[in-house]
Design a protein around this nucleic acid. Sequence first.
DNA 1: AGCAAAAGTTTCCAAAAGGAAACATTATTT
DNA 2: AAATAATGTTTCCTTTTGGAAACTTTTGCT
Lengths: 208, 208
Amino acid sequence: MTDQQQQDIYPSMTITSDQHEQKIAPIKLGERLKQIRRTLGLTLEEASQKTGLARSTLSKIENEQISPTFQAMQKLTSGLQIDIPQLFAAPKQVSTTGRRDITRNELGKPHPTSTYEHELLATQLTNKKMMPFKSLIRARSFDAYADWIRHDGEEFLLVLSGEITFFSEYYEPVNLSEGDSVYYDANMGHMLISVSEEDASILWVTAS
Amino acid sequence: MTDQQQQDIYPSMTITSDQHEQKIAPIKLGERLKQIRRTLGLTLEEASQKTGLARSTLSKIENEQISPTFQAMQKLTSGLQIDIPQLFAAPKQVSTTGRRDITRNELGKPHPTSTYEHELLATQLTNKKMMPFKSLIRARSFDAYADWIRHDGEEFLLVLSGEITFFSEYYEPVNLSEGDSVYYDANMGHMLISVSEEDASILWVTAS
DNA sequence: AGCAAAAGTTTCCAAAAGGAAACATTATTT
DNA sequence: AAATAATGTTTCCTTTTGGAAACTTTTGCT
């Protein structure tokens, strides 16, 4: 590995949501797949038998002539006993893959809603185990969601500033001040509001 | 559709090619996707704009009427800022075991060393996916570790106060100020010091 | 309630993927 | 090197996907 670490991290994915135009991260699925198949010492015919996909189809996928369907990918991954992350992992693996992404304060990409403003962090790295973001919770933001938020995974939350109330399905509400944190199962209904006069700032990290 | 969602759409397809017989996990991509979209608070139209896929297509994918192509999936994941593995994560759950742990500021369990002071958070919960802690890095803490820190998993770091320099094996050192964050592969050698006159306070979250 | 707007689904057709078999290339044997 | 076998690619055709617009359902409002 010389000096192209910069590249290893999935490069240039530009999304222009206005006009439906996007450049997609150039993951070379076909190349990757051929590499894996070769590593396993399989011919196309053998791979075909293991996956149930036609030899021709495999060839076309490897040569990037077609884009396999989800079903095909399932057959691929289960047939060859590889897992999806492996397919999408950066091609370089042998030595420790240096991946890094810095998010400067206030320079993230905010997703504003009426009561929250979510700012995703480390958006340049895909395939992460954790998904960190900062949120601003507007002062006195009641009614916002009348309903529980519930999703897979676990969540860690730290109050950066302000004061919030953390509601959850199986517990009494708690007030959290700056520096306080909660760790919880996100399948448990949860929701939070700002109770003070000022907006509250929160750090979340989710992992599934 | 009444109650047979469990089974239907990816009907645990069994590949019977000659010798190898396999069951493909019936990952319900559509359901998963709908869940994610809902979690993000997006309508089909909004998701359509973010991903560049037609509203109708999204609908059909969510209802498992079609199996999206790889291209479509790339648009999905990059447009909605989600990881591909996230999509494939096991159906999971129902466990809804409410687990929760609150750590009050300054009330954690500090582990002091000469240059750091680590305070583990959420210590009452075992078996967590993430391991959060706060650290205090003493001012002008040089030489401390002359060597890289390296371990499995990924790490997320946010500067709560002060200013530090983040050293890593494959990159130039960077200065991080309050609010800045880094996400990196912890296998890559890393290390940090406080550069200002005051101690710096950091939040870390690790996941393996 | 009834109406209007928004969200979601289905239809229809063009575009793309998957498979069988022909074709081409590479490896192996003599 | 020629012949043969094995591996990989392309062609041709059928099945499936993806998108625009029509249609249906749900949500919000007066």
